[in-house]
Design a protein around this nucleic acid. Structure first.
Length: 780
DNA sequence: AACTAATACTTTTTT
DNA sequence: AGTATTAGTT
């Protein structure tokens, strides 16, 4: 078989003289890279034609399949690098793929122009056809800050009380609509009502209008505008359909509706789309990811082949067994059986603690123990559900003198000083960028306060010109008091001067000049707070990062999309992070603290999304367990401080769902709580008095559909766009529609005013309008 | 415009 | 409880 393929490679090889020599050289070798794959992986790499879904469980070599597949396509000469579309979610994943393809084909991967994040590729396409989207090719991409700032202005102009209707909420709603591929016109009436009594949709439309005026897009637009471009200009779509001979998608379970539609349009060309993902690792439902996308793959892409990667190369049998047993409790899944050859290993440890402090103490001691055994600290991780849990560990590690690092946290580009600095650069390049102008107009303080900016805004709106233009006008008048007037005039002069230097001065020098002359560096130097120093360091780092680009404009293009802090590899440290940021990573030893009911199945997730929320929490737990190679330890606390108040906690139901054979309940030292030796004793005692007794939980249990493993994970109305079925699933709890009279344990009687999937907006007779989950109400 | 007092938050996070 | 943002005061 290898031989036949090798021949095929040679034949097509000669027909494709454009291939780089390194790849051609590879074609002659009998495709050695295939020999390192197991049969399923190999099939996934070699099944090139038609739609393919690779269900890759945790640790089964997902990235390897993806990268080898690309190498394979190239070496067979089935496509040139520029004819392959490969999308990931994060820049990190894209970088890693580039590096690994480089290793495979020997050398740097030049000319994989279409390997990148959804957003990066979206920008690229949109810039090429900006005019068709009513934009100039130089459009800017707004970050979240700008987005909020803009919406605040809009709300102000519309006289909407920002207290009652915060800009953040509107931003989240608009984001949600964009994630679902909804333009303002298509926003359902009912949902529009959820903001400012029905103004939601109009505000969205207004916001889009302002974006166009500013020649800007937000993150959501990158996909949405692409979609519109493709739908309204079939010739453009056809162009890309013909270009992309092969499409590869990483983490398919995380795609949202807009991304899905985008992929589907493009895939109508070659039909060679390969999606890799794991429905059991879908943990981003709350930000628009549709598990249904992966569950429905066969329907969406008729004739699709599905390959399961079930051989795990990461964890011991006990860890895998525990994780598999846990995830088996989920109903809406395609189902996989993970195997490993690594051996049984140690059982998963479970230990109860008195409170979160003891939890940190116990884990700290364990880590020191491992350290004495020669375990590297960088191979140890603590994975928490919520970031507030980190504090107890940080406190403990500081007293122990145990080096640790917090993974995740604010990204480099999101830091205040970086945003300020780039705002200066942006305004230098593009004076019409009002949002950035506003951001730095009075930073550092130069006497341009609220009042001055307000007059400026008025003038800008009256003349329909950018703020910078308005500023030029206003300094010629008596409108402002002398002091702000002078400050503004100086600022305009400065920007003009900086702009005149763009072509002559080296961009890094210019950047330093701008930060110096604007007084921005001086501002931080004058501040004595401990953070000021690190902010100055970050600014230096920013300039260093700029070296990698040729021009200021080139740098700015990348800044909002591609920049993030690189993890400095120093001395070995214990890793502390959330379960979400742990996805895709692996460690020898993993600690999973806080498996408390209400924290690991997070209460809010349960409240807001009912059973699908519970299942997502279970997937989160599963992701946590499968990060471990050799050892995993789960802990829970009996007492936990929630917003200042001590509260009793009970062990997570997930602990009881772990298969007993793979688990060992640890002796608790110094622990004298109300529970005995067995975790089941505990659970039973707590069953009698705790969460499971609440009416909501019981009702949720009762409404839970039985049987049918093929049940969809979520009940909701089908989503259609342009009559295209986008996300259909079975509709449970039928009969719950607008107008239906319902009863709720806590809120009493009311009638439904809006249905959004399993979320209902109910107007209660006594309690007023509330959002509730369908399983918590009863028809009356 | 800058300080202090009061008030409102508090799951997860990428682009 | 603790912080982060905002409103009110000087």
């Amino acid at each position: 078989m290898t031989k036949i393929r090798a021949n095929a490679a040679e034949i097509s090889d000669s027909g494709e003289p454009q291939l780089p020599t390194s790849m051609r050289a590879m074609g002659r070798k009998p495709l050695r890279y295939l020999e390192d794959l197991n049969p399923e992986q190999r099939e996934a790499v070699e099944t090139l034609d038609g739609p393919l879904l690779v269900l890759a469980g945790a640790g089964t070599g997902k990235t390897r399949v993806l990268t080898t597949r690309i190498a394979h396509i190239l070496s067979l000469g089935r496509a040139r690098p520029s004819q392959i579309l490969a999308v990931t979610f994060t820049n990190k994943a894209a970088r890693e793929m580039k590096a690994r393809i480089g290793q495979l084909i020997g050398g740097v991967v030049e000319g994989m122009p279409w390997l990148g994040t959804f957003h990066a590729i979206g920008v690229k396409i949109l810039r090429r056809h900006a005019e068709l989207a009513d934009l100039k090719p130089s459009f800017t991409v707004l970050d979240t800050d700008d987005q909020i700032r803009l919406l605040k202005q809009l709300l102000g102009a519309e006289n909407i009380d920002e207290k009652r209707w915060p800009a953040r909420l509107l931003a989240a709603m608009i984001d949600g609509w964009k994630n679902r591929g909804l333009t303002p016109k298509r926003v359902p009436e009912g949902e529009s009502f959820a903001f400012a009594n029905g103004k939601g949709r109009d505000l969205y439309a207004l916001y889009q209008k302002r974006l166009k005026e500013l020649n800007a897009v937000d993150f959501g637009d990158l996909l949405l505008e692409n979609l519109r471009l493709f739908q309204e200009h079939p010739d453009v779509l056809a162009q890309y359909q013909q270009r992309f001979h092969f499409m590869l998608v990483d983490e398919y379970q995380d795609t949202n509706v807009a991304q899905y539609l985008w992929l589907r349009l493009l895939a109508q060309g070659s039909r060679n789309i390969c999606c890799v993902g794991d429905d059991d690792q879908s943990i981003y439902g709350w930000r628009g990811a549709e598990v249904d996308n992966i569950l429905r793959f066969e329907t969406d892409f008729p004739g699709a082949k599905i390959i399961r990667l079930e051989r795990n190369y990461r964890s011991t049998a006990n860890i895998l067994g525990a994780a598999s047993g846990l995830i088996a409790h989920n109903q809406g899944r395609l189902g996989k059986t993970l195997r490993t050859d690594i051996g049984a290993g140690d059982k998963v440890e479970v230990q109860g603690c008195w409170d979160d402090e003891e939890e940190a103490r116990v884990i700290g001691e364990d880590i020191e123990q491992f350290q004495r055994q020669g375990q590297s600290l960088s191979e140890i991780a603590i994975l928490v559900r919520a970031s507030f849990q980190m504090r107890a560990f940080e406190d403990r590690f500081i007293t122990l003198g145990l080096p640790y690092r917090v993974v995740g946290g604010p990204r480099f580009y999101e830091r205040q000083e970086i945003r300020d600095a780039t705002a200066y650069f942006e305004v230098t390049l593009n004076p019409a960028n009002d949002l950035k102008f506003e951001r730095i107009a009075n930073t550092p303080r130069r006497g341009l306060g609220e009042a001055s900016l307000k007059s400026l805004h008025q003038l800008a709106r009256a003349h329909n010109v950018p703020l910078m233009q308005a500023a030029r006008l206003i300094v010629e008048t008596e409108e402002l008091k002398p002091r702000p007037r002078k400050a503004l005039a100086d600022l305009i002069d400065s920007f003009d001067r900086w702009r005149s230097l763009i072509d002559t001065m080296r961009h890094t020098e210019l950047a330093e000049l701008i930060l110096d002359e604007s007084g921005y560096t001086a501002m931080w130097q004058a501040e004595k707070s401990p953070q000021a120093q690190s902010k100055l360091e970050n600014l230096k780092e920013l300039i260093r990062f700029m070296e990698e680009f040729d021009t200021l404009a080139g740098f700015m293009e990348h800044v909002s999309l591609v920049m993030d802090a690189e993890a400095e590899e120093g001395a070995a440290r214990v890793n502390l992070m959330t379960l979400h940021s742990a996805k895709g990573l692996e460690f020898d030893v993993v600690f999973l603290p806080g498996w408390d009911e209400g924290l690991l199945p997070h209460q809010r997730s349960l409240d807001e999304s009912g059973r699908s929320g519970l299942e997502e929490e279970r997937r989160l737990a599963h992701v946590g367990l499968t990060r471990a190679r050799a050892r995993a330890k789960i802990t829970f606390a009996q007492n936990r401080r929630t917003h200042g108040m001590w509260q009793q906690a009970i062990p997570s139901r997930f602990i009881d769902e772990l298969p007993i054979d793979h688990v060992e309940v640890a002796e608790t030292q110094g622990f004298h709580g109300s529970y005995g030796q067995s975790r089941f004793d505990t659970a039973e005692n707590l069953f009698a008095s705790g969460f499971y007794e609440t009416p909501g939980w019981q009702r949720a249990q009762r409404n839970r559909p039985r049987g049918g493993a093929n049940q969809s994970p979520r009940a909701r109305e089908p989503i259609t766009i342009d009559g295209t079925l986008v996300a259909a699933s079975t509709i449970e709890g039928a009969g719950l529609e607008v107008g239906t009279r319902v009863f709720h344990q806590k809120f009493g009687y009311g009638h439904i005013v809006q249905v959004d999937g399993n979320k209902l907006t109910v107007d209660f007779d006594k309690a007023g309008q509330k959002k509730v989950v369908d399983s918590f109400v009863e028809r009356v």
